[in-house]
Design a protein around this nucleic acid. Structure first.
Length: 103
DNA sequence: AGTCGAGCGCGCA
DNA sequence: TGCGCGCTCGACT
């Protein structure tokens, strides 16, 4: 089983309206390959099924989306999150700790 | 505060 | 093979 596969699995475990972080995932996988997580999500095989937009950076930053660290794609990610009930302000998660899903 | 460099696992050339 | 990435952390300015 590949590292990225586990990443997808964990992603799918994140309930709507909540989020998680690359770090949490890495921890859960007992790995420090946080970048690989980003890569895995970028090369997400099932973009809708795997809610990769629910994964953000540890400091509450949105992170990136579809290979962009800023720009229109990120806005899309934000609106998706807001639709699901996660407030985003200034490209950052509002009440980060409250919506953070821990595995 | 901000910046720098190292480590990680995988994908693509 | 080698490099870059949706990252993080500790050390330094």
């Amino acid at each position: 089983v590949k590292f990225s596969d586990k990443v997808y699995k964990l992603c799918k475990q994140i309930p709507s309206g909540k989020i998680s972080t690359y770090r949490e995932i890495g921890k859960k996988l007992n790995s420090k390959a946080f970048r690989a997580i980003g890569q895995a999500l970028k090369r997400n095989p099932a973009p809708i099924i795997t809610p990769c937009h629910r994964v953000v950076r540890t400091n509450g930053d949105i992170g990136g989306f579809s290979g962009e660290t800023s720009g229109p794609k990120i806005q899309k990610k934000i609106s998706l999150l807001e639709k699901e009930g996660v407030q985003v302000k200034d490209d950052k998660i509002v009440n980060f700790e409250r919506v953070l899903h821990r595995f």
